[in-house]
Every structure is written in structure tokens, then in C-alpha cells.
């Protein structure tokens, strides 16, 4: 069984983790074309080579990211999500809820 290093809990059997899909940037939901939006929702890049993926350590519910080579299945590094997401994300349409 493979080992994966959780940035919070250290090296663990991969059975302690849940895979969370490929990391990619969500296009602007108001301005992107229907095609681009469909690409985002339904298609995966499935790159042969270096990919960034979401992983969750189940016992601590800790989400983080991993860089992995899909050809060799080698995990290059794992890191906390705040390395990418450094500030609050705003969605800026006016609030007109009733």
C-alpha cells in the first residue's frame, strides 16, 4: 500500500485518505461560455505527467493538495490549500434575495 504524506498528520497509508479530484481553477460562472463551463464541470484533463490533486485525510477531515506524476505514480510533494488559496473569494453580484 502506498504512503501519502499529509501536511498535518505526516506519512500515512493511502487507505486513510479520500481522493478529491483534480485541482483546477473554476472559470467565471457569469462570463464563461457554456462550452467552457461544461469543460469545467464534466471533463477532466487526465494528463499523463505532473498533476495537482485534492486529497482529504479522512480521520482529521483535512484537505490538502498533492503533486503527483501519473506516469510513475510518484507523489512529488503535498501542501496545504492555503498555499494557493490565500484570500477570501468573493462573488460580486448584488444580493437581491427576498
Amino acid at each position: 500500500m502506498k504512503l501519502l504524506t499529509c501536511p498535518l498528520n505526516g506519512k500515512r497509508n493511502i487507505s486513510e485518505f479520500t481522493y478529491g479530484g483534480e485541482y483546477h481553477v473554476m472559470p467565471d460562472h457569469r462570463t464563461s461560455s457554456a462550452r467552457d463551463w461544461a469543460e469545467h464541470v464534466f471533463f477532466h484533463d487526465n494528463v499523463a505527467g505532473l498533476v495537482t490533486e485534492w486529497w482529504c485525510h479522512s480521520a482529521s477531515s483535512f484537505w490538502f493538495l498533492a503533486e503527483r506524476n501519473t506516469i510513475t505514480d510518484e507523489v512529488i510533494r503535498t501542501f496545504k490549500a492555503d498555499e494557493i488559496y490565500q484570500q477570501r473569494v468573493e462573488f460580486t453580484a448584488p444580493e437581491t434575495e427576498v
Partner: peptide, 12 residues
């Protein structure tokens, strides 16, 4: 402390 799995159950 280990946050891990004991008998397939999440545990601290």
C-alpha cells in the same frame, strides 16, 4: 497523538 483509523473507524 495520531488521528488515524482503528478497526476501520476514524479515531484520535
Amino acid at each position: 497523538i495520531a488521528q488515524t483509523s482503528v478497526a476501520k473507524t476514524n479515531a484520535v
